[in-house]
């Protein structure tokens, strides 16, 4: 047998996902829909937060959601109470969503009929960071009960996200949440990151965040039409 030799190939392992994500992004752009994905650990309050988001945006906007979960359709059932179109993506044993799953789930939806599409990823702060879903904005959620140093424990996901949302603020007194420490932790892994601190339960801080989304949509449409 001859000596082994080295050949350069340079192949991006996630190329297939990235190609689909790019196609999705183009499709979203053409349809004028603003797509927001949500990542967090399990139990951070993603579903309640999303339910309130859908309900409160609905009077002004056409909204819909895709919900990724390992098993059960409980989250989709909860979100359906908002009366917005909701579809569950059950991933089985897979710990994250991939662009192809989003593409499949959207096949029979007319994106032109939507202003906002929300994609709730599987509750996991590690794996979803590697996969682009074609979203315009990635929100990372962390609840006040999780500990202020979560961003430094999971820097990759915080670094891959655009906006941080601190949830369950109504509990911050009970758990002695240190807001400055949390903000420093976020700043250290993602300098300048936009942070919202809110309570989906009481509604505190929600309007500031919803106004932010409205502005994002308006900006995206201004770009499309210019």
């Amino acid at each position: 047998m001859s000596e082994p030799r080295l050949i350069e190939v340079r192949r991006n392992v996630l190329k297939q996902n990235d190609v689909i994500a790019r196609a999705l992004r183009d499709q979203f752009h053409a349809a004028g829909v603003f797509v927001v994905s949500l990542v967090s650990s399990p139990g951070s309050g993603k579903t309640t937060f999303l339910e309130k988001t859908l309900t409160q945006l609905q009077p002004r906007y056409r909204v819909a959601a895709l919900v990724g979960d390992l098993a059960t359709e409980n989250d989709a059932v909860r979100l359906a109470r908002s009366k917005a179109p909701v579809k569950q993506i059950t991933t089985g044993t897979l710990c994250h969503l991939e662009a192809a799953m989003v593409q499949n789930a959207l096949q029979d939806w007319d994106l032109h009929q939507l202003d906002f599409l929300f994609i709730e990823n599987v509750g996991n702060l590690v794996c979803p960071s590697s996969y682009d879903l074609g979203e315009n904005l990635r929100l990372v959620l962390m609840s006040v009960t999780e500990g202020e140093d979560k961003p430094q424990k999971y820097p990759t996901i915080f670094n891959s996200a655009d906006v941080a949302v601190i949830t369950k603020n109504e509990l911050s007194g009970a758990v002695e949440f240190d807001w400055d420490a949390a903000r420093k932790s976020i700043e250290s892994v993602r300098p300048g990151m936009r942070i919202f601190r809110l309570s989906a339960k009481t509604g505190e801080g929600m309007s500031e965040y919803l106004d932010f989304l409205s502005r994002q949509l308006a900006e995206q449409r201004a770009v499309v039409h210019s």
């Binding site: 082994p4 080295l6 050949i7 190939v9 340079r10 996630l14 670094n159």
Partner: peptide, 16 residues
């Protein structure tokens, strides 16, 4: 936060 490198996941070469 301006990342120039560090997200690579690339099959760079093969020994054959």
């Amino acid at each position: 936060g301006e990342v120039l490198q560090g997200k690579e996941l690339e099959v760079y070469a093969l020994e054959v």
